[in-house]
Nucleic acid binder design. Structure first.
Length: 445
RNA sequence: GUGCCUCUAGCUCAAUUGGCAGAGCGCUGGACUGUGGAUCCAGUGGUUACGGGUUCGAGCCCCGUGAGGCACCCCA
């Protein structure tokens, strides 16, 4: 037997069932996004390499797919949807009414080593608000996030919030130049994974004095009800004006978040949260889910100077991203969205070859009535084979036409799930099928 | 990008110290000429991921490549 070719590392095919599930998740997200007035946009998968270069930090840069096209252009596959948005805003600046709210759902590429929930091609689902510094925008983006997560009924998802400038204040508290603070952030971010002592060791290794390390540890261990954490940190960092400003912003953000009606249990202020992407400037957030050990479902944050890299003018922006594959992983794990293996709702079958004409005619009228209708196209069309096809494919209903039915102007409707069967007049078939589909859907929920 | 583990039929997995490559499920046909999913019977299944090496002999040992997984790094 001939060996079929493999797909590229970190890239996958999707079966009909998988695609139907992915589409359902995407549909839910789209509906949530649109309910807040975000409009869709799309951008090319390929950008000039220059557009992407220097936006993601040293580590991110290595993961960029980069090549020269046949015209000798240096190009790159998009790494996220945020930088393309910034480029889009720069290009279409004069057509946009600010604040500009858009959502964007599509594939991005990172040349990483694949793992569960981590692929080289994956989909991001982003909402962003461009053109306002107001914390109202940051709050709205997080409110949309929480709405999306609860719409999908994702269990145990918690939004961890922090502030970039608070992180820098921590680095200062540790006696490290903010510009050289990367190892400190890295250590801080591992708190949940390696624990207090682990972080302490790593801070020391980064050259932090023991006393400063203890002070940092004390701060990052604060987590929980935002207003309480904020007041404690406010005292601890009272000599740091930048930290005070960040705390003001966070206080405002959390006030709005509550006003948006986001349940207080779905987010925490977590001073140990660090995010790697270079472009973040203000509040940052991450959705973390405990159950499938998949890490974060999404990242969010304010980036007030990214768009300015493409323009003379600096335009502030904030946004949030969800990873489709990781959402689907959770949805799968908990069976949150039972998905059929086919879109087909009805198979119209002929008992004998003589009824084939009647079958095609019935199929046509069922399609006109809006039902996803199939006829069996195989060469051997005995009844058994056709029902077997319906069963294997997961088609819920069959409409059977035989000599008796033709003679009496009826159709036999068979429910493949229950095995129930009834004879109905041709004119009523669509109605009866629809009723059965509804009761099925109602029954399985 | 670094380290470790894995790869046997479409799927899930067996195969003694290196000695003829197996089972269940699936699939095909039949028991069943107007009824799928149950049961029974029969049949179909393989370059052991790919390429090389050692050996009288390799699924098993060695090297390389590819893919998957775990950790690191980083992140969605």
């Amino acid at each position: 037997m001939r060996r079929p070719p493999q797909v590229l590392r970190g890239m996958r095919d999707f079966s009909p069932r998988q695609m139907l599930l992915r589409q359902r998740v995407i549909d839910s997200l789209r509906h949530v996004f649109e309910r807040y007035g975000f409009d869709p946009i799309d951008t090319p998968l390929l950008e000039y390499y220059e557009v992407l270069a220097g936006k993601y930090g040293e580590e991110g840069e290595k993961l960029l797919y980069r090549f020269v096209d046949h015209g000798g252009r240096e190009v790159g596959l998009r790494y996220d949807l945020t930088v393309p948005l910034a480029r889009y805003v720069a290009v279409h600046r004069n057509e946009l009414t600010l604040p500009f709210k858009r959502y964007h759902i599509g594939p991005v590429f990172r040349a990483e080593r694949p793992q569960r929930g981590r692929y080289r091609q994956f989909w991001q689902c982003d909402v962003d608000i461009v053109g306002t510094r107001s914390m109202l925008a940051d709050a709205e983006v997080l409110a949309v996030w929480c709405d999306a997560l609860s719409t999908l009924r994702i269990p145990n998802a918690v939004v961890h919030v922090n502030h970039r400038q608070l992180l820098e204040a921590l680095a200062r508290a540790a006696g490290v130049d903010p510009a050289l603070a990367l190892p400190v952030y890295r250590a801080i971010d591992k708190l949940a994974k390696i624990g207090r002592e682990g972080v302490r060791e790593e801070l020391m290794r980064a050259g932090v004095e023991p006393a400063a390390a203890d002070r940092v540890l004390e701060l990052i261990q604060l987590r929980g009800e935002p207003s309480e954490v904020i007041s404690v940190v406010r005292q601890q960092l009272q000599d740091d004006p930048q930290a005070q400003r960040a705390l003001d912003e966070l206080a405002e953000l959390f006030t709005y978040l509550a006003a948006y009606g986001v349940p207080s249990g779905s987010y925490v202020l977590d001073l140990s949260l660090a995010r790697g992407l270079d472009y973040y400037t203000g509040p940052v957030a991450e959705v973390i889910v405990s159950q499938p050990a998949i890490g974060s479902l999404g990242g969010a944050g304010r980036y007030d100077h990214l768009i300015g890299l493409f323009l003379d003018e600096d335009i502030p922006a904030t946004g949030a991203s969800l990873g489709l594959e990781r959402l689907v992983e959770v949805v799968d794990e908990y069976g949150l969205l039972p998905t059929p293996g086919t879109v087909t709702q009805v198979l119209v079958v002929a008992v004998e070859e003589g009824q084939q004409g009647a079958v095609l005619q019935l199929a046509r009228s069922l399609r006109a009535a809006g039902l996803a209708t199939e006829v069996y196209l195989g060469e051997r069309r005995d009844l058994r084979r056709q029902l077997q096809y319906a069963n294997r494919k997961g088609i819920p209903l069959a409409a059977i036409v035989g000599p008796d039915e033709v003679e009496s102007g009826t159709v036999t409707v068979r429910d493949l799930g229950s095995g129930e069967q009834e004879r109905v007049l041709v004119e009523k078939v669509a109605e009866v099928l629809r009723a059965r589909l509804v009761s099925r859907a109602g029954g399985t929920e």
